[in-house]
Write a protein that binds this DNA or RNA. Sequence first.
DNA 1: GATGAATGAGACTTCATTCAT
DNA 2: TATGAATGAAGTCTCATTCAT
Lengths: 196, 196, 196, 196
Amino acid sequence: MEPFMKEKIMKHSITLFESKGFSEASIRDIVNTLGVTKGTFYYYFSSKEELLTQIQLQYIDYMLEEQQRIIEQPDRTWKEKLSGIILMTIQAIEGRGSSARIFFRELLHISGDSLAAIKQKRDRFRLNVQSVIEQGIESGEFRDDLPPEMVAFSVLGACNWCYTWFKKGGSLSDTEVAAVYTEMFLNGINTIGNKC
Amino acid sequence: MEPFMKEKIMKHSITLFESKGFSEASIRDIVNTLGVTKGTFYYYFSSKEELLTQIQLQYIDYMLEEQQRIIEQPDRTWKEKLSGIILMTIQAIEGRGSSARIFFRELLHISGDSLAAIKQKRDRFRLNVQSVIEQGIESGEFRDDLPPEMVAFSVLGACNWCYTWFKKGGSLSDTEVAAVYTEMFLNGINTIGNKC
Amino acid sequence: MEPFMKEKIMKHSITLFESKGFSEASIRDIVNTLGVTKGTFYYYFSSKEELLTQIQLQYIDYMLEEQQRIIEQPDRTWKEKLSGIILMTIQAIEGRGSSARIFFRELLHISGDSLAAIKQKRDRFRLNVQSVIEQGIESGEFRDDLPPEMVAFSVLGACNWCYTWFKKGGSLSDTEVAAVYTEMFLNGINTIGNKC
Amino acid sequence: MEPFMKEKIMKHSITLFESKGFSEASIRDIVNTLGVTKGTFYYYFSSKEELLTQIQLQYIDYMLEEQQRIIEQPDRTWKEKLSGIILMTIQAIEGRGSSARIFFRELLHISGDSLAAIKQKRDRFRLNVQSVIEQGIESGEFRDDLPPEMVAFSVLGACNWCYTWFKKGGSLSDTEVAAVYTEMFLNGINTIGNKC
DNA sequence: GATGAATGAGACTTCATTCAT
DNA sequence: TATGAATGAAGTCTCATTCAT
């Protein structure tokens, strides 16, 4: 009957999981919101965990795709690519905040093969950043005295942390935040005189 | 008979909440581990939420105290104070990792006045960092073209994020990570030539 | 499978609530008797209080219907109508004793809107009696020197009190009790000589 | 320390049992109100049921004493004695309403010998009324065509029922209510013309 | 595609009570 | 006299899930 029931369920679940948390949001909550019955839910998803898995996969797959697009851009410096990833990450938090929050918070409730798959993709996203750093070092754009792994962790940490405070429609736009973050990571907060 | 039953309950709960998550760890889990009964639990805590509240308060109160100690140190530059806070934050994740993880993950399960109180303390911690940045700018140690609020968010984000990956006894010590993070935030990852 | 599960639950609950009291009868007691699970109970009733509410509503609705039927009878004197209500009340205690006892004893455990609704119906039942008295006074059948409100309370009190002692199958039938009560209320217990 | 602790516990329990019901009022409620601990409670009462028993005994013993005083009055007609008992019953509901309500509502929670003892006293109170009726019949004051048992039940029913609606400080005083009830039971509600 | 009825395990919590001190 | 710590049973209720239709 409803052609996009599955999408509707996912969409409403994302809202619910964000506001109440995965464990506290019940299947009943989900289906009540939609005016359908639990049977309908189980027609589309084999379990609550599977729903969460799909939400997480949808998010990380999107992130990986966007990241790939940026990295593959020809004629861009590594600096520009890093900057592009920072912007994209914060834009995702602005545009898909609910999914992002679920992604960062609710990994604990996934188990087995799904967990392994998601962890692998998360790692891939991070290692891609690390790879950009490494290639930037090789090309001479970035300092070679900072461990790339650490740099990647710190850049991603700062960006991802935005999910805890960034509010769409607040006083700062995603672009502005990304610009400040990029400048800070590239040149530091020291006054110029202090550096050379 | 047992003089420190309350402390024992808190300690074991922290372990359990970290590994299973707050919602999935049951009162039964907690008391079984300790060999006492549920009644004992409710003698010391009026609810599961209250236990979580106390865990969070214990953590943030510790963090605020440590932070205060650092900020109040005389004869230190703002740079040193910022660096001290970065180190302290990562050390807390190393030494009190379970509490830290609960602190960052399980805010959603606290409500009402407790929530307000904890949020206020979280904010205070962040605003203290921001204040260090601002005073460093005034003293000329830090650049004045980056918004202090943003800098504080980004530094704290990077440090806090360590809770997701930092493993005690891993290949990197807390001191090493803190040193790299500090260097990166102060001077950026650009090669020197790019800056001057 | 079972087509009348809800009715079965209500029926057995009435028996249990009567014998053990509402608070002492547990959901477990109810479902064990029926050989179903607690889940089944909560599929039909959202709470124990709601079950009690429905039991009370079923009783008072029945009473109001019967009362209405009596009051609406044409060609009956007010005396006959009052007598009819007395008989009906005692018959209800004989025929639906368990419900009646629950109705009189367990109002305390209902709250909120349900309580208001039930109280309103209880009042309506009493005010209907009062109205019969008032109309009997106007028609000259009843004395006009006794406050109708008080008469209604006293008649209903005497009848309702039967729930504390009347036993079906005892030495006195409901009809006999009703006849005595009616005679007493109409003519008093004074010897005739005393009156005129 | 506190010389009248036991009395204080009883007094507060009566208030609590009236408003929340016996089952719903917990020992904790009782001792919290008084600022003492559960241990104190169990120093004075061996169980919650024993407390209820004592409350009920206190009430029925008082009622029996008052009744005895009335019955033993010399130079009074049976009519006057019946009228005295009616007044006394309603006065007890006015002056000791909480105890009365507990007395009528919470018999179910007493068991064993205490239950037997209380039931016997309740019966004695009723049989004393019945005896007044019987002696009034013998003396020619009351009609001999109404079964005394039934008359006693009905008079007591009407009076006791006042516990469900009589409010101290309402529009009617206990004396007024008693006067109306007495008149009604003695002479009925029929108009005079209807009787002779 | 979707429903309604039922399950059964387990959740948090409260309670009357005990007992050493 | 009174307390504080602990018990253990039981309470109400929610939940993810199943399955015949």
